[in-house]
């Protein structure tokens, strides 16, 4: 059964289509990543699914309820962590959570104990107002506020944008815990790595359309996984190096004479790297630099949009 179902979802602002017919089907208990650059329509999709915005076309169901005709039922089944931390900065973390608990119609006693539970779980026991929190703490408080009712479906809009790596890891850990409790999560992100770390399936969105959908591995394998990048010292050796890399690469090798780079996609990073280095040494080719890079969002993205937006 689907926790989130969207069919031909559209939203236009005047002439401009922020969403241009999005289909989504998120299975219960899974994590779906919406991956896309700025302005792709990620927040618009989340805002429609959380009843904050009325779609201009198409339909959507969350937890089995229609977002336009049954908004109250939807709201009882979701938690939202918006793109910008939406906590009351003058209240302490505890006061924030107790307030939101009351507004979710928990009794005073229930909201107090729920707040205490969440504060401990998210490591938020700071006595001062939320404006004193670090970015990571504020984000976790936001996350905790979205979790008051332990909702079956949780929406996270760019939960780690602007966080340092440590805070990011903390947020990721919290999300994984929720998922292990059976929560369905729909999260948007601009980072392939985040989708890779958290999502079971990813929908790549560009200009209001889903241009690809699949597991993170499927998406990455479409552009041939990691990129092996070698810079040779002597331009004379470029062709020979390209042959060697071509021998292990899973796709076409690129060659750049000006910068003396040879690049090719590889599937197994360590083995390919070892093989290439051994072969280069045997051929007497001196490398100035060698690297295996994960594909960036740009690369996945360019590749997927170039492919003409075919879906699996």
């Amino acid at each position: 059964m689907s926790a989130v179902l969207a069919q031909g979802l559209r939203k236009s602002y005047g002439e401009k289509a922020a969403l241009d017919g999005i289909d989504l089907d998120v299975r219960r208990g899974t994590v779906r990543g919406l991956l896309g650059p700025n302005g792709a329509g990620k927040s618009t999709a989340v805002r429609i699914l959380t009843t904050l915005l009325r779609p201009s076309g198409g339909r959507a169901e969350v937890a089995g309820f229609d977002v336009t005709t049954q908004p109250r039922q939807v709201r009882r089944n979701i938690g939202l962590v918006g793109q910008h931390a939406a906590v009351d900065e003058l209240l302490t973390g505890r006061q924030n959570l107790e307030l939101f608990g009351r507004l979710c119609h928990l009794s005073a006693v229930q909201s107090r104990s729920r707040a205490a539970e969440l504060l401990e779980r998210f490591g938020l026991e700071h006595p001062g107002p939320a404006k004193e929190y670090s970015g990571g703490m504020r984000r976790r408080l936001d996350l905790a506020a979205g979790m008051i009712l332990a909702p079956p479906v949780l929406f996270l809009d760019e939960p780690t944008t602007g966080l340092d790596p440590r805070s990011r890891a903390e947020v990721w850990r919290s999300v994984r815990e929720l998922v292990s409790d059976g929560t369905t999560v729909l999260l948007t992100t601009q980072y392939l790595e985040e989708a890779d770390q958290l999502a079971d399936r990813v929908s790549v969105i560009d200009a209001g359309r889903v241009v690809a959908e699949g597991t993170p591995d499927e998406l990455k394998s479409r552009i041939g996984g990691d990129q092996l990048d070698v810079v040779v010292r002597d331009p004379e050796h470029l062709e020979r190096a390209a042959e060697i890399i071509g021998g292990v690469a899973s796709g076409p090798v690129e060659l750049d004479r000006d910068t003396r780079h040879v690049r090719g996609p590889v599937n197994e990073r360590v083995r390919s790297l070892t093989e290439v280095l051994t072969a280069l040494a045997a051929a007497g080719i001196e490398a100035e630099d060698v690297a295996v890079r994960r594909p960036t969002l740009d690369e996945v993205f360019l590749n997927l949009t170039e492919a003409g937006g075919v879906r699996p």
Partner: peptide, 17 residues
């Protein structure tokens, strides 16, 4: 502007509140 209103609007509380 801070998204607090949106948080309220996404919660199962009475909208007029």
């Amino acid at each position: 502007s801070k998204g607090v209103t949106d948080r309220f609007r996404s919660m199962p509380m009475a909208p007029s509140a």
